[in-house]
Design a protein around this nucleic acid. Structure first.
Lengths: 333, 333
DNA sequence: TTGAAAGCGCTACCAC
DNA sequence: GTGGTAGCGCTTTCAA
């Protein structure tokens, strides 16, 4: 069933059917109704490929994400998808993993499908050395990065000030009496670097001795984190509070500490459900996905409408306090 | 840059270019190389819409999911996407929410995009009353349901025997000495009903009195679950073990119990990271997404290749034991 | 092994 | 308001 069939059965030309289909203006009420009723009867659905060919768009946006099974990315994806759909766009999803080669390959794959725009979720898409693929993509369609920063033409970034968040956390703990704050982090993506820089910055602003900085890299795996922190403790490493770049790491640390009967102030990051599930529940930095994502989509819609838009939108984070943070921070270990 | 440009620059016809593009057989080595090199030079990418129009497929599979931000669904999505991509298919993602009207609407939207197949993630897509939309969809493309069961032509289901899993859990706890097992559940989707039935079945097989059945429905929200269980305890409801239809519910119960200084055996469901993050970590039923999803995709690939495939594949679940389950189950309360 | 040409189903421009 | 028709960029059949 195609537009010709509908035209024939309605006794009009395909041009008229096309107008009805697209809400065109120059159609008499009577004709429109007739055509619509025929479409209904025949359960006609216009061919999206043909339409795409003609209009040079299928109203699809490609979303690249390193790992949807990650709680944080999953939430971002959910929000972005919902907002895009509200604007009539479909989402072509592509999970890349963390290998640069794969990210490049999949980005190309997405572009080949002729998406109207690309959204990159997470700063993992911002390489330290080589962002040429993003540059290439942005020559074809607008690129929006959620929580990453790449300064190139036609690339737009909406992100959270994670550096500042970490600085504040350090200062907060300092005011509570902590003097030696362990910082756990996993990857050194742009986001990872920002957080680490924030940790150092806070340390400095509190006037703490630089040689006491205690930043430890771990894999994002609960058991590995737990055993890492456990071994830190066993080796006599001393600290009186814990910050983490990710809730999961905070939970791992908490478990290690609990294993030794310790309760220190711990602050996670991302404010995911993991922080809530921990016992006691963990305070965590909320990086405002709930505003970040709609903002990003709105920005994209402006772009596609040909309106100008800022290349960078920076939101400040917000600390969500829970049980772990309300405790007294008596130095231990 | 289109196929005509490439043809011209290569000194051949578009037919030949097309053959090269599709790995066609009848092209001389020399011609092929020439064309390929021109394509390379011009960074030519065939137009996916035109190709879609000609082939009547863009090699896309639509995935419907009620809520990607849910840990369980996110993992399923991740696995399905990865496996589909491995087979050269792109994924059109659509998050529907739980309203039937929306599910129907989005399913249609997906079909309008002319996807090659539809994958429904979760039994939330199996309504108790009206599955006509699934029937309609299956008349156009194969429908694969992950962890749901709809018996219709061209609908294929890959699922986990959750009923049996719950029955076994009850029996296990019974052998450990539990006599009054609280069962927490949220929705009564197909999956929800199966689990509940399994709980009852286990009760029966243990010869426990039916009037002691203690199944309580709660919302899937940590705080709500916690307060619900807390109020059960306050109202003198007695139980000596907890089963849940979802890890989050188990965690909520655990928190309520901990608030009263109780530690009972608790078994969650889905074996998500939440169960690991809880303290003490929770045993949980693994419903085998890691095998379920690849199996589903392989089945789909067979279908698309015109091979026959079973309409139902049932896998048995597996209990992952953690701290909460290794404790003595001394009856409390 | 290659090329010419007829679709695929739609949009949009131009006439009437 | 309506219809005729030329693309859009590709695949595929048929001839050569």
């Amino acid at each position: 069933m195609n537009i010709y069939d509908i035209a024939q059965r309605s006794g009009v030309s395909i041009a008229t059917v096309s107008r009805v289909l697209n809400g065109g203006k120059n159609v008499s009420q009577k004709t429109r109704e007739k055509v619509l009723s025929v479409m209904q009867e025949e359960a006609y659905t216009p061919n999206a490929f043909a339409r795409g060919l003609g209009l040079n768009t299928m109203k699809m946006v490609g979303i690249l994400c390193t790992d949807v099974s990650d709680t944080f990315y999953a939430k971002a994806l959910s929000l972005v998808e919902g907002n895009l759909r509200r604007h009539g766009f479909d989402v072509l999803l592509c999970c890349t993993g963390s290998q640069l080669e794969d990210k490049k390959k999949y980005l190309e794959l997405l572009l080949q499908k002729r998406v109207d725009a690309v959204v990159l979720i997470g700063s993992a898409f911002q390489e330290n050395t080589d962002n040429s693929h993003i540059g290439a993509a942005s020559k074809q369609v607008p690129v929006v990065i959620i929580n990453g920063l790449v300064e190139l033409p036609n690339v737009y970034c909406v992100l959270c000030d994670e550096k500042e968040a970490l600085t504040r956390n350090v200062e907060l703990l300092y005011r509570q009496g902590s003097r030696r704050i362990l910082y756990l982090y996993d990857t050194l993506t742009y986001s990872g670097c920002q957080k680490l820089a924030g940790y150092r910055e806070g340390w400095r602003s509190c006037g703490l001795p630089e040689e006491d900085l205690l930043a430890v890299q771990v894999n994002k795996n609960l058991e590995e984190v737990r055993s890492k922190v456990k071994s830190l403790l066993e080796n006599g490493e001393s600290f009186d509070a814990v910050l983490a770049s990710e809730d999961l790491l905070a939970v791992g640390a908490q478990k290690a500490l609990a294993g030794r009967g310790l309760t220190l102030p711990i602050i996670g990051f991302n404010n995911s459900v993991l922080a809530q599930c921990a016992s006691p529940s963990l305070s965590s930095v909320d990086n405002m996905l709930d505003t970040l994502c709609p903002t990003a989509v709105n920005l994209l819609m402006d772009l596609l409408d040909g309106k100008p838009a800022p290349h960078k939108i920076l939101l400040s984070a917000q600390l969500t306090e829970r049980e772990t943070f309300r405790m007294d921070s008596t130095p231990h270990v």
